[in-house]
Design a protein around this nucleic acid. Structure first.
Lengths: 226, 226
DNA sequence: CACATTATTCAACACTTGTTGAATTGGATC
DNA sequence: GATCCAATTCAACAAGTGTTGAATAATGTG
């Protein structure tokens, strides 16, 4: 009603285009969780009939897939650029940038995070494969950064790169997911600062754990908002 | 048929007692995930009619609750004993013991882990509360161990106890959950060793991150199987 | 105007879910 | 043997699910 048809590429003007459906799906996933998100709820949120979703997407699984494809290329692009061996910035800064990338792209999308977590995997073998295909290259690039850090003498030489990557990014996902919901129950931090406090605490611990010289001071780490 | 009635405390001999239903529920949760686990699937696994579940438990939520109550007291008991200030063993050993407790009690129960992860929370506010009520005292006791470690000069004095606890146990849950499923895709570790390798790598990183003297050698850490 | 084309809705299908009330089983007690 | 009662099953409910085929609305083109 208030949203004008952005681009009507057919004889009948478009009221709800596929992107709006994806927006709605993302919102419903965020509210109700992945498995409980029904097509009817998504349609209601998008302001259209459930059948319209089937006009634009073949099935619920295709909808999932489209949602993944809307997010992952940007993440992969950023991580890929970050893993460029020509990037000679301190390893600590580059690893912190990994957290910032996750923050930037996944902060507002609990549905995608739930997919990555594998909430929907059981019984949906096809989706498991889809996710693995998209997550794997990201993991590989981050582990390259770690290998470069070891070669440059910034990191302990005895680190297993994949596990070390797993620890870094997995915890960041958990921080984005549960900290804002959990931490206010224990402390009285202002909600906006929960994420930043958690991320900095985590990176402080992590860096000390992986650095060749744990006591050496960290370079200044930019805020997510910068 | 092959299972004899263990204890028939009523006029009609018990074919499927509540504990067997809980066993079945646990198994189905492990296979299908929490949300997808239907009472009919649980009943099939237990070898009885779905209605029998309602004879022993008031509702599906009561079943969840009973499952929580079967696991959590033992975990809490172990952590409580570990947090005894009279325990003067090295802090590193005590924190490693935390991981062992989680391993011991939660390794074979993905359903409970999913509950802790909060997979079912959306829209089930009552369950969120039930879980929080059981997880919170455990978290508090672990954070006591960390505070004691700081006071004893084993840990850095600037650690936020709750976040430091969160990092330790949250990662252990993730290790139990996803590492056995994920790591074989990347490496070729024998499956039995995946967990132990992950736990040791994680604790190695974590300890360096929190110790007052990161370079000091760790005490010998006992295997989960010991 | 009629026509073709795209976007959208409607109504229904077959199925699964949590739940319940009535009926049935089978041993213990009188 | 009749009675009682816990244990168990049966059949059904109302609600919700993903999905589909036919029908309709609204535009541009001949």
């Amino acid at each position: 009603m208030t949203t004008p048809p952005i681009k009507s590429r057919g004889p009948k003007p478009t009221k709800v285009d596929p992107d709006q459906i994806l927006d709605a799906a993302q919102a419903v996933f965020a509210e109700e969780g992945l498995r409980a998100a029904s097509l009817r709820a998504i349609a209601r949120q998008a302001g259209c009939d459930p059948a319209l979703i089937y006009y634009h997407f073949d099935s619920k699984e295709t909808l999932f897939k489209a949602l993944l494809d809307r997010r992952f290329p940007a993440v992969l692009h950023d991580v890929e650029r970050l893993a460029d061996p020509a990037d000679v910035r301190p390893t600590a800064l580059r690893l912190w940038e990994v957290l910032l990338i996750y923050h930037r792209h996944l902060k507002d999308d609990p549905g995608i995070r739930a997919m990555i977590r594998g909430e929907i995997v059981r019984g949906a073998e096809g989706l498991t494969h889809l996710i693995e295909k998209r997550v794997r290259p990201i993991v590989v690039h981050v582990s390259r950064i770690i290998e470069q850090g070891m070669a440059r003498g910034d990191l302990r030489p005895d680190l297993p790169p994949l596990l070390t990557t797993f620890f870094l990014v997995k915890m960041q996902l958990e921080i984005l997911d549960v900290l804002p919901a959990v931490l206010p129950h224990f402390t009285n931090l202002p909600p906006q600062e929960v994420l930043l406090t958690g991320m900095r605490s985590w990176f402080d611990l992590y860096w000390r754990g992986v650095a060749l010289h744990p006591a050496s001071p960290l370079p200044p780490l930019p805020d997510p908002t910068a």
